[in-house]
């Protein structure tokens, strides 16, 4: 899993007025929980862009007023019209305690169905998994080379020794859909109905 370092400053006052003031100064009010205590702090808006506007999931090494913590993004609030980040929740990582995360999916290989003229469709962008942070991969690799037209890869077919998949087992991760070109090519083959 990718890691990044960030530093934050503790919030002296929590509340609407102080939060609005910090947003005006280019900071994002944040909270870190999941450990012993919860910490209210502020982060620089610009430094957050790398972890927010990306499909990758980051493990963040925080330095908040001298205290070192490890965390992952748990929740994000954005303004309805401006899409500015208003507040972020971080989940503190405790060694030995599993966390639930959404990991991006990467399809590997060229499917047989695609070679026959079908179209590969990815139904899930991320998969919800539970496991220890040290076992979390950057992405979940799904091999689609054996997929024919109409074939599917379901969540139940994905296996991992260290991770538990929390999405419904019947959920389709990827499929090869038939296209008009593939259908007409099949009809043109003599002896096939």
């Amino acid at each position: 899993m990718k890691a990044i370092s960030m530093s934050g400053s503790l919030r002296e006052n929590v509340g609407k007025k102080a939060a609005r003031q910090s947003r005006r100064e280019g900071l994002v009010p944040s909270v870190l929980y999941g450990g012993k205590d919860q910490i209210h702090f502020c982060l620089d808006e610009k430094s957050l862009k790398k972890v927010i506007y990306t499909p990758d999931v980051y493990l963040i090494n925080f330095d908040i007023a001298g205290t070192k913590k490890q965390a992952v993004i748990q929740d994000l609030q954005v303004h309805p019209t401006t899409d500015k980040v208003l507040h972020i929740d971080f989940l503190e990582i405790t060694p030995g305690k599993p966390v639930i995360m959404n990991l991006p999916i990467r399809l590997e290989g060229v499917a047989l169905g695609v070679l026959a003229g079908g179209k590969l469709v990815k139904k899930f962008r991320t998969l919800k998994v539970k496991g220890l942070v040290e076992n979390m991969p950057e992405e979940i690799k799904v091999n689609v080379t054996k997929l024919e037209i109409g074939g599917t890869v379901k969540v139940s077919s994905l296996t991992s020794d260290t991770l538990q998949f929390l999405d419904r087992p019947t959920g389709i991760v990827a499929t090869v859909k038939s296209t008009r070109a593939a259908a007409t090519a099949e009809e043109a083959v003599p002896g096939k109905k």
């Binding site: 927010i52 990306t54 499909p55």
Partner: peptide, 8 residues
């Protein structure tokens, strides 16, 4: 017009 945050 808006685009998904994690769009590539």
């Amino acid at each position: 017009f808006v685009v998904r945050r994690d769009y590539v």
